[in-house]
Amino acid sequence: MLGLEYPPIENLVEWPNYFGDGQIWALNKIGIISLLALIIPTVMFLVSKKELVPGGLQNIVEGVVEFIEEQVIMPAIGAQGLKYLPLLLTMFLFIFFGNLFEVIPTFHMPANARMANPLFLALLSLVVYVSIGFKEHGFAFLKDTAWPGFVPVGLRPLVGLIELLTVFVLRPFALAVRLFANMLAGHILLVTFGVLCISVFTAGIIVILLPLTFGMLVLLTAFEIFVSFLQAFVFALLTAVFIDSSLNPAH
């Protein structure tokens, strides 16, 4: 009715390379955002003052560190998980800044709306918690997973199969898909309302509906900032929970 011309999805998530076409180091917008997700936290940490009485940027930096400690590690693992702080903090920062570019003008693209980064992070999470399990419990980790002692003998092959599938396939798959799909859905939602705003703006008398669509766009932008934070938090929290289940596999 409005002549809504929706762009093909390839135009929304696939970006041309700046250089290195066909090579592994081909750099496109996603790569730029990944690099920025590296640079921004680094600069924030380096620039922030180190004073006994914090202020300004130092508050934010220490708040992030304390948030990971108090809200992610302590509830999920406990005090013995504090040595995983660098990993979880890096995951949180990298995902959060990758997501945040969803609402930053001139980018308007979350790096995690492409499968590459979520897949890598989920596989990293898998490697981390499996290696922690082997380190803490040796081969018994695999044995306890595949042949769980807490169920009747008759059920053990079935439960063991489910457990193996859960630990080695479903967890990383769900981690990657959760992050990827949330960010892609948010991106498509923002694009939809952006396109709708333009269509309404150029559609004659229907322009009176513009405040509604634009207000919705603004609200969704705020919501997507929240989702960016929430997904980074959930990813770090779930990784912590999986690490905990490797440390203490006593169901």
Binding site: R178, V234, V241
Partner: peptide, 8 residues
Amino acid sequence: TNMFLGIA
């Protein structure tokens, strides 16, 4: 915290 886990 558990609510967010469950939601996830």
